[in-house]
Design a protein around this nucleic acid. Structure first.
Lengths: 130, 130
DNA sequence: CTGTATCCTTAATGATACTG
DNA sequence: CAGTATCATTAAGGATACAG
């Protein structure tokens, strides 16, 4: 009980610190394609090309790269059937689901705020610079 | 009651669609510096250089650019005192607070999962490629 | 179908210097 | 202090071709 006590916000990891490994994981999770990929997989497993269609605009290369990073971080599981033609299913791990849940809450919050955001932009763009 | 009905997920905006304006806002919010900036401001208003110290690693240029985007989207408010030397305070709008709340839930989830993430990476990196 | 490899282009970022 | 402007560098992304 001496030295470091264990309070609820006494975290070993801190994204605000440049060198903390959590910053890299946060970037995988919130990156341009990482967030949408996790969001898409929250509903259930998807195959590579299903995912590609779901995440509108992603290229093969970026999706592949994104999936590798998420798999390495333990958020996504990859299951390959040794059939011909090959069939590969991607789905979230329990950890991935917990992260995706928060991510989707954020996504829905943003989607639901877009009328306000667009109005704010309009106001910002039309105001006179003093 | 004909035509489009209003269900809970019948959203006007959809980040999964490439051309939806919500995708751009999501990127501002989850971008490399946008997320950390919003997270830092959730606790209260900060001045430019305070923010810069808080968001470890951000350059003047990127912080300035990030703040402009968040201000334009109506998430951050900028208040300049006409003093000399100048004093400028940044703080979240009500909308910014709602977004930052979800963002911090995600951040804390990631920070709290890092032991698992690091273990997953270790396993991924040491396994034999079949 | 599920990717990988390569090349090329563009966008993001960083460093530095400078202004009000 | 609070930025802007410019330049140089780097990283991200896209297109295409091809392999298992």
């Amino acid at each position: 009980m001496t030295g470091m006590t264990q309070e609820q916000d006494d975290l070993a990891y801190n994204v605000f610190a440049k060198a903390c490994p959590s910053r890299g994981t946060l970037e995988h999770v919130t990156g341009r394609w990482g967030g949408l990929t996790l969001g898409a997989l929250q509903e259930g497993s998807l195959r590579f090309n299903e995912l590609r269609r779901r995440v509108d605009g992603v290229s093969e290369k970026m999706l592949s790269q994104t999936l590798h990073a998420l798999e390495r971080d333990g958020l996504v599981h990859r299951e390959a059937q040794p059939t011909n033609p090959p069939r590969v299913d991607y789905y979230l791990t329990p950890l991935g689901h917990r992260v995706a849940e928060r991510l989707l809450a954020l996504i829905h919050c943003v989607e639901g705020s877009m009328d306000d955001v667009l109005a704010a932009r309009e106001a910002y763009d039309t105001r006179q610079p003093s």
